[in-house]
Amino acid sequence: MSIPRRFFLQAGASTLLASLVHGCVQSSQRSLLSVDDSLLAQTKKRGYLLVVTEDDYPPFEFLVNGKPTGFDYDLLERLRKVVPFEIRQEIMPWQGILPGVAAGKYDLALTAVGITDERSKLLDFTRPIAESTIAYIKRKDDRSIKTLRDLSGKILGAQQGGVSLAAVPDLEAQLKQQGGAIAQVKQYRGFAEAYQDLLNGRLDAVLHNIVSLSVLVDEKPAIFELGERVSRKSYAAWAVKKGNQALLDLLNGFFSNLHDQGELKPLQEKWLKISFEHLPPQPLLPGDRPIQ
């Protein structure tokens, strides 16, 4: 902060110090989010807010030399600065995250969770942080796949228990209308293995969200090629246990502030290689959205 020279002429050192301290306190108070009493009690009982993130889901969250990084990690660091309690983070494979939050083992799935009708029965979602529509990726040199229709008779890869697997019925319905059908869908714990099988010819295409595939193609344009969207328009959000309204309100306030202050778009462009100007202010379930 720049202090005009005339200020020093008009005020003593003690007055200047008091003014600076007062200003910093006011700024700190303005930056803190309002926290519901029930959430404070909930956090006090555990001693901290416990969030869980995935370890292999770039660009949203992943590890570099054993340290967490990515879009969601940047958001976590900003969240830590505006809440009056400690936030601890655990990192684990995808398969244990949502069951852990639904059971109350963790307070928050701080990861890009695809919003589905089935998940909404056990979890509540924040306002979306990104689009998560499922598309496909293929090998650059594979000339047999040019349009969505060409996925008929092909072997596809999807994540076990993930939203890419949940998008398969939409794709099957579209292919059926054209007289086609998927040959097989192989399920993988992580996408790294699925991409490797794609390169080795064990798969013809991999289904994943449009953001992750866009980043991969941006990094390896000579190897992979992005295909069409295969499902209804969908979104990714953070998730809390069903009924934890106090935490949900806090997080939605956090995202609203980031959006209003112009901080969310630069983070999206940095990590996702795309920005989303008009995300809905609340989750929309797949049943509310037509197939693209």
Rank of each mutant, 00 (worst) to 15 (best):
W271I: 01
Q174F: 07
G157V: 13
F62N: 00
Y195S: 03
C24S: 09
V35L: 04
Y188F: 15
R139I: 09
V217L: 02
E193V: 02
A166F: 03
I3F: 15
V163T: 11
Y188M: 01
A167L: 07
V217M: 01
L98Q: 03
H22R: 11
L248I: 06
G227L: 00
L32W: 13
V64D: 00
L79W: 11
Q95W: 08
Q178M: 13
Q10L: 09
R289M: 03
D197H: 15
I155G: 13
L264H: 09
L258Y: 09
Q26T: 05
Q26C: 04
P84E: 05
Q95S: 14
F125E: 01
F224P: 07
L39Y: 10
I97T: 13
G114Y: 03
A102R: 10
D260P: 00
G243V: 05
L148G: 01
K67N: 03
G100H: 06
P58V: 00
Y136A: 12
R119C: 01
D288H: 06
P58S: 08
I274N: 10
L247N: 07
A158D: 13
V185N: 14
L264I: 05
G47T: 02
D170M: 06
G12C: 09
F60S: 08
Q159V: 11
R149D: 11
V240P: 11
K273S: 05
D124F: 08
G287H: 12
Q160T: 14
V51N: 03
Q89C: 15
Q261E: 15
P68A: 03
F85E: 13
L39F: 07
L75S: 05
K270Y: 06
P68Y: 05
N65H: 01
K81Y: 04
S34R: 11
L207E: 07
K146G: 13
G162V: 04
I129Q: 12
Q292V: 11
K45P: 03
A11C: 03
W238P: 09
L279Y: 12
G253V: 04
Q29N: 14
P169Q: 14
I155Y: 14
A173L: 04
D260R: 14
V113K: 06
P290E: 13
T15H: 04
L108N: 05
G70F: 00
A181H: 10
G104T: 12
Y235S: 02
S212H: 10
